[in-house]
Amino acid sequence: MSSLSLSRFTPTACRLAARSSRRAAPILYRHPNSSPSFRHHTTHSTPTSANSSVDPNEVSHFNALASSWWDPHGPSRLLHLMNPLRHDFISRCRASTASSSPPIRYLDIGCGGGIFAESAARLPTTASVTAIDPTPEVLRVAEAHKRRDPALMAPNKLTYLNKSIEELPVPSSPAEGYDVVSVFEVLEHVSAPGPFLERVMQQVRPGGWLVLSTIARTWTSWMVTNVVAEDVLGIVPKGTHEWSKYVNEGELKEWFGRQKGWGGGVGEMRVMGVVYVPGLGWKEVPGGEGWGNYFFGVRRDEV
């Protein structure tokens, strides 16, 4: 079993507790984004339809959140506040190596209501953004919100697709892949991260970056996301997080270390730990990847 298959790390009791409450929120929050797809076969994963790896429980959870997605004081507030850090992290990744020059083509997987996708599409260095999500209701929210900004309505600037990663065509040649593929606050909703990531990786062009953010699976994060954020403070909707699905940064590093053609050069695998401090907002915390929310970026080697 790959180290990314989480079930063996998860004490059954914890898993059951997390599941029965279905509260999720990260300490930092996890995106109530959509969940990615990946079909898979971990022992405890919910059975899914034959051609999609999307967890139907996750889809219905995010359907319920859809209407408040763009309310700055609603349940997605922490995600909105986190968004500028995503751009910081991507810029840092791209600056660390000789990356392709702008304009940049983005693929955002699990785009939800479009918080990241819209912001990426507005940047002057962006050529286009393709954003996918398997949850129909949040995609409708994303489409409706896009119509509120003429800048996003320019042809091919921002394209939403109600698809899971399995349904997205694989580029006919690697060079036609995307410059930046983002998977924000999605991995923790995926029950089989390995096969999911393999699908995602096919979309990245050589020299491009795969960038993700998620939450470490630690006692701290369980306490903060499942208990404090959802139950005590109520700043994250109940049922957003399932702690057993969290992936640790070490597991990601090890897993990508074994993928041929990825993160081979110096500085081509990057990580940034972040923490939400009430009253101050999201702050970068060196070492935070060990116990809370973190960003992870890996570059596909040039051919």
Binding site: N83, D88, L123
Partner: peptide
Amino acid sequence: EAVKSGQDIGSTL
């Protein structure tokens, strides 16, 4: 700051 991170500069956020 909003322009740098692609935010809608008219949003309350």
